[in-house]
Simulated scan of single mutants.
Amino acid sequence: MSIAHHRRKQPIVVRQQLLDVAARLTMEQGIATVTLDAVAGASGVSKGGLLHHFPTKNALIDALFESLLERFDADIDRRMREDPDSHGRFSRAYLHAVSDLKDSPDEAAHWAQVTIALLAEPRLRDRWRVWVQLRTDEYIGTDSSIDAQIVRFAADGIWLADMLGSHALGDERGALVARLVELTNK
């Protein structure tokens, strides 16, 4: 009897391990080059074990996107809980969550690769669109002003600029974020 038969099954741990390896490989090699074989090999999980959790590469990428989105949501929710002013709270939390990605290189790299897939994959674009619409609807009473919308669009611009490395904001970054925060208070 092999060791595998004596090993305790931990499907949640294995699933997360596979997602972590997929995220790392995506960051190192780019999402287009990540294969199920590569994820299985790098994680030490058999291909059959990987296929149990993720029957296709698309299922793996979708799960990776969901995992990132859950962490992003949790970050936004934490920031909202810490903000005593309800007016514009979601827009401020979104702005800070996006602009602070640069301070977490691994998280930023994961989002960069998934954003590339997001642009190319209709199912991921649809999932992002649904997330944006749900959050927009949820905070319509506090974050529906034109200024709040401008802040969220500017945050998306910061995200893209950080991802592409196209704008070196330096000391201006703090002033830009502060000015955008001011807009959420109107």
Rank of each mutant, 00 (worst) to 15 (best):
I150S: 06
H53P: 00
N185R: 14
T26G: 11
R152I: 14
G44K: 05
A93K: 03
N58H: 12
T184D: 09
R135Q: 13
A175H: 07
H53Y: 04
R79M: 12
R152C: 14
D20C: 11
K47G: 01
V34I: 13
D100F: 01
R7Y: 03
R129G: 15
R8G: 09
F65P: 01
A120D: 04
A23F: 06
G49E: 00
D100H: 03
S166P: 11
D162I: 12
L64E: 05
H6I: 03
L68W: 07
R24H: 09
A4G: 07
F65K: 00
R92Q: 06
D77A: 13
L51P: 00
H5R: 13
A161L: 03
R127T: 13
Q113F: 11
V98F: 03
A175T: 07
L19D: 10
V132F: 06
E182S: 14
S99G: 02
L124M: 11
D73R: 15
L60W: 06
V181R: 03
A109W: 02
I3G: 10
V177Q: 00
R71L: 11
K102F: 00
E66T: 07
D171E: 08
G48F: 03
P55Y: 03
A93C: 08
A74N: 07
K186A: 12
E172F: 05
S43C: 08
H53N: 05
A40D: 00
S46V: 06
H87F: 11
Q133F: 05
L180G: 03
V98G: 06
D106S: 13
F54H: 10
G141D: 15
L101S: 03
E172M: 06
G165W: 08
T26Y: 02
H167I: 15
N185Y: 11
D85K: 03
R179E: 00
D75E: 13
D75F: 07
R129Y: 13
R123A: 07
L164K: 13
P84R: 02
R89A: 14
E70Q: 15
D147V: 15
L50T: 05
L164G: 13
M27G: 00
A32Q: 03
M1W: 14
E138V: 08
S104E: 02
E28D: 06
D83H: 10
R7Q: 09
T142H: 04
A168N: 10
I61G: 11
A59K: 02
D85T: 12
A38M: 12
L69H: 01
D126H: 01
S99E: 01
L183G: 05
A155P: 14
V98Q: 02
S91Y: 04
R15C: 15
A148W: 09
T142R: 04
D162N: 14
Q10E: 11
V39H: 04
A23Y: 01
D126R: 00
G174M: 00
I31P: 01
I76L: 05
P55H: 02
M27F: 01
T142G: 02
D106M: 13
T142W: 05
S99K: 00
M80V: 08
K186I: 15
T142N: 04
S145N: 12
Q113S: 13
G49D: 00
G165M: 08
Q16S: 14
H167V: 15
G170W: 10
D147S: 15
T26D: 05
S67C: 12
D75P: 08
T115C: 04
E182D: 12
H52C: 06
R92A: 04
T142L: 02
P84L: 02
